[in-house]
Computed example of a mutant assay.
Amino acid sequence: MCFVCEAPEEIESVLEGRTCQYDNEILITDFVADDLGLQIGDTVTVAENDKKEEYMVSGIYQCANDMGSNFAMSKAGYERVGNQRLGEAYCLKNPEKAKDIAEKLNERYGTELKVTAERGFSGIDSIVSAVNAVSVLVYVLAVIFALVVISLVCGKIFAKERQDYGIYKAMGFTSGNLRLQFALRFMLVSMIGSILGVVLTILLMNKCFGLLLSYVGISQIETEIAWISVLIPIGMMAVVFFLFSYWKAGKIKRVQPRVLISE
């Protein structure tokens, strides 16, 4: 696929080199560069029907069209070899008017062309919905994981420390005090794990996204972390671990100081 841009200086996804400023220059993606063994400065032949011209690779950019199998050139560059158009896209100064403009154009030119008012492509809403659904699923799985872990670990810890609780009660500690101390231990561990996860996310997130999205033409991605999106999961998991462990520590009520005599 060829992406023809009337204002190539506005292409912001150039990774290496520079944009295609002149009519004898093109941009290629990493996918195309690897597939054809090209690099910046190489000369290629671009043809359409019976016309062909030579162009120089001025830079590497990223674009997900055709799963990354695409290149870009200026409008002047494309007019050297052809004039076909499969579609055109425009950026409006007032994007909020896009739907009204599209409706009026379709009313007048509906038999000749089709105008849509979409940012990106038609499937973007579905992708956003899918990502939101996955986010909810991750939260649900995290809660289930916490419940399973606490259920498995609490039993072992209680069996190991049962005599200690008898000693604490003999010293005057109440069941509520011991349950609170038990739950705080789990909450502290969950917070340490969450903080470690945040650190690893900051260090590895962009690399992991780049590796996954490289298969659709996006080889580099820069993400920004909103701290509210970090604090909410950490706080949620801390509360979940605290409540579940406090609930499982209800066995402490049945521990009496006389357990020291029997054991």
Rank of each mutant, 00 (worst) to 15 (best):
V148D: 06
Q256T: 15
G250Y: 11
S262R: 15
V239L: 14
S190T: 11
T29H: 00
K75F: 11
L105H: 07
S129N: 08
L27K: 00
W227S: 10
I195F: 10
W227I: 13
F173Q: 01
V46P: 09
L243G: 02
N206W: 03
L36I: 06
A133W: 05
G210I: 01
E103P: 13
E12A: 10
I127N: 09
Q21N: 13
G193N: 05
G217M: 00
Y168D: 03
P8E: 08
A130R: 08
Y61V: 01
Q21Y: 12
L213K: 05
G217Y: 03
S135D: 11
V255S: 10
E224N: 13
Y55C: 10
I124T: 11
S229L: 08
E79V: 02
V128A: 07
L147H: 08
G123N: 11
G250M: 03
L178R: 04
E222L: 09
V230M: 01
V153K: 12
T43C: 02
P8A: 01
Q39R: 14
N24G: 14
T45A: 06
E9P: 07
S13C: 02
G59M: 00
A64L: 05
G41E: 09
S214P: 00
Y246M: 07
N24P: 01
V131P: 03
G172H: 06
E263A: 10
Y109R: 14
C63V: 10
M237V: 12
V216G: 02
Y55W: 06
V140E: 04
N106K: 00
Y78K: 01
E107N: 13
Q220I: 14
V143G: 07
R254G: 15
F241K: 00
F31I: 15
T19H: 10
I202H: 07
V32K: 04
C5M: 11
I234C: 10
M56H: 06
G210C: 09
M56W: 11
D100F: 05
W247P: 04
Y90L: 14
C20D: 15
A146G: 04
N106C: 04
T111P: 01
E53I: 00
F121V: 12
M237W: 02
